[in-house]
Amino acid sequence: METIKNYLEAMFANLPRTPEVIKAKDELWQMMEDKYNELREEGRSENEAVGVVISEFGNLDELAETLGLEKAVEESHELMELEPRRQLTMDEVRDFLHAQMARGTMMGIGVMFCIACPIWVILLGDTILEGIGVLLLLVQVALAVGMFVFASNRHARWKYIYKEPCSIDYATADYVASEKERYNLGLKGQRTMGILLCALCWVPAMLFDTIGLAKLSVMDNIVAVLLLLMVGFGVFFIINSSIVRASFEKILKLNDEKTMSSQFVDAQKGLYENPRLNNLMSVYWPTVTCIYLSYSFLTFNWGSSWLIWPIAGIAHSVIKKNMGSVKQA
């Protein structure tokens, strides 16, 4: 049955996505499904049934004529020759998704290192180890930068997925959609956890204050460290989950929006996004990191500069929600 579905989807993949074509595909699918089921009930083997259904399907040129699609079919042939879409294999897509998961972890850890780097200075600040504290801070920032550079170098391998027109077949689309579904709960959990950690970062301070420990000056430092760690981990979860989610969505919307192949996955609404905004958003997090580091180093106001992260996070989702998706034609 899966073979028949793949066959039909592949036949229709390059046709324009119009109501007539969608209706034709649905109805042809109905007939093929009926025929397949009956052949199976008659006791034919899976392979035999699939063979019969596919051999008796006919050809699309005949259909194109009736649907008034000759021009569209011709154009899609021409387009394929002029601007061939790179067909990604299932293995390639699987590698890409795994690479993106690793990248999410690295970028997340990198940003977390940046946010948490002042803890050494805070902890060792007024002791003879102050120098070591500063050193550790610099080492940690260097590590973070190293991770950013490493992650983007490795990411460069996949540049073609972002730059060239690519496409995926039905089976791959189906696989990615089910993977996305499988990770969905985990990603949502991470995101919620991240937001909670950022939102509740002031709780230790309040608790310490209530139980009267705030009088000890060392407690101030511990509160600050806890706060930075909570924000750091929170941001890690948010970044990691959004990179992984974005990689699923990137693959699912590779196919040309105007053709039937964009229908491989149900519930595609909102997946196709404003390309201009996407370009803008690709520099969003690096810019925020830049602002954070320069502001913090210039003013040494580490106590409040971390606030940029939760604010940037909320601003990010607001921008995406409001301007992200283009209206479907």
Partner: peptide, 25 residues
């Protein structure tokens, strides 16, 4: 769709099988 194609096959003693695309056209 399928019911019609099945009847065409039966009534023609299996000598004519109409293709799905032909039928839909």
């Amino acid at each position: 769709g399928y019911e019609i194609s099945k009847q065409i096959k039966q009534l023609s003693d299996g000598k004519y099988v109409i293709k799905e695309t032909t039928l839909y056209s």
